[in-house]
């Protein structure tokens, strides 16, 4: 359709080229491509859809793709509990080793776009297979990587389990983490494809996108690609100014504030005088 013409054409072209190349693909034919290599976070940025596609090796229709943004520093979390009539923080933790964005997308051979995946625990099944190559995806992978420091209260195994479950829920509500067991579509030519949505507050950095192909006799195989999310233009300039020259940034901000107030006062004075 007209508005997405160029992008649709590009995607179509890439799909055609990859389909044509399927017959000649070596080492099993697994591939992964992203329709954009660089996502520019400029003034008009409000999130972006990224089209991810590639070939599945012969003999399988099961794919797991993980999109992961670089980690960030320790995150301070608190667990709220009821004390008398009030809800207040009863435990506090600092958690490190967390990714900034973590999306796990799966194909579901028995599902379709309208229904949920009929398979029972598709993520668990994928993890059981991936264990052969020492890989884990989904909430369990986050748990295995996270390092938790107890700041106040709690600290028991159940507390930590509740903390990490709650953290997953919290990040999912922001669109930064998530698992979709029925996201990846496959066609008859051995192509897989899906659209991933990067939210407006997606972190900057080099994202890694890895597809794992399951159900192969020789064990899981993978293909990976990268995506760069960078601030751009005025957004990048202001971020840098605020970080490197805070005095200048602060004086500019206060100056603008005072000037705006004075200007409005002057304008209204004229209007009042007239």
């Amino acid at each position: 359709m007209t508005a997405r013409g160029p992008r649709a054409l590009l995607v179509l072209l890439v799909l055609v080229v990859l389909t044509a190349g399927a017959a000649t693909a070596q080492n099993g034919g697994e591939r992964l491509q992203v329709d954009v290599r660089r996502v520019r976070v400029s003034l008009g940025f409000s999130g972006q859809k990224v089209f991810i596609f590639g070939h599945v090796p012969e003999g399988t229709r099961r794919v797991v793709t993980v999109i992961e943004a670089p980690g960030r520093g320790p995150v301070r979390l608190m667990e709220k509990g009821r004390v008398g009539p009030f809800w207040l923080g009863v435990r506090q933790y600092a958690v490190s080793g967390l990714p900034g964005l973590y999306l796990v997308e799966l194909s579901c051979p028995g599902g379709n776009v309208l229904r949920e995946c009929p398979e029972e625990d598709p993520l668990g099944a994928a993890n059981r297979e991936l264990a052969a190559v020492g890989v884990m995806v989904g909430p369990e992978a986050i748990v295995s990587r996270a390092s938790v420091e107890v700041l106040q209260g709690g600290g028991g195994a159940r507390d930590l389990e509740r903390l990490l479950d709650g953290l997953w829920e919290l990040e999912s509500s922001l669109g930064l983490w998530g698992v979709d067991p029925n996201r990846i579509r496959l066609n008859d030519e051995g192509m897989y494809y899906f659209e991933a949505r990067l939210p407006a507050h997606a972190p900057e950095g080099k994202y890694t996108i890895t597809s794992w192909f399951l159900g192969l006799p020789a064990g899981p195989r993978s293909a990976s690609s990268e995506l760069f999310v960078r601030r751009w233009g005025l957004v990048a300039w202001l971020s840098r100014l605020a970080a490197r020259h805070p005095w200048i940034y602060a004086l500019i901000t206060v100056g603008i504030a005072l000037a705006a107030g004075w200007l409005a006062g002057a304008v209204f004075r004229r209007r009042t005088d007239h």
């Binding site: 009030f86 809800w87 923080g89 709650g166 829920e169």
Partner: peptide, 12 residues
């Protein structure tokens, strides 16, 4: 203050 929060785990 007196109503249960939507999410018990929150960013400090």
């Amino acid at each position: 203050l007196v109503t249960p929060p939507d999410l018990l785990i929150q960013f400090a």
